[in-house]
């Protein structure tokens, strides 16, 4: 899998942000998932194959974005830190926070 992992926003020059419940991101855009109040928002994100999704931690607590199947795993994200992953294969990707595993969410790649 050609995963590009961008940490801490250092390489995140792309400005186009699409967020909102199940907002389909156009290929090439970078939909964001907010991590806030121990929740991933939107809880389900649907994107076309090839989309890079960016998570941003708005909590004061550390969180992670972790695929139990091992497809992707962020490092520990401090407040305002970001993590991105490019979904190059269609499928349903469940993920959770490894520190607070009651935090669960899904990316649907079409």
């Amino acid at each position: 899998m050609n995963a590009r992992i961008l940490i801490g926003g250092a390489l995140l020059a792309v400005g186009a942000i699409v967020a909102g419940p199940a907002a389909p991101g156009a290929a090439g855009s970078t939909p964001q998932v907010a991590i806030e109040n121990f929740r991933f928002t939107p809880s389900t994100l649907t994107v076309p194959t090839g989309t890079t999704v960016t998570w941003v931690n708005h909590d004061a607590e550390i969180h992670t974005v972790t695929s139990p199947a091992g497809a992707f795993a962020s490092p520990a994200l401090e407040t305002d830190e970001k993590f991105s992953f490019t979904f190059n294969a269609p499928g349903i990707y469940a993920y959770f926070c490894a520190l607070h595993p009651q935090m669960r969410s899904t990316v649907v790649v079409q």
Partner: peptide
């Protein structure tokens, strides 16, 4: 030890 497979069910 009850945190090694903490991820299994969120518990």
């Amino acid at each position: 030890v009850n945190v090694e497979s903490y991820k299994a069910k969120g518990l």
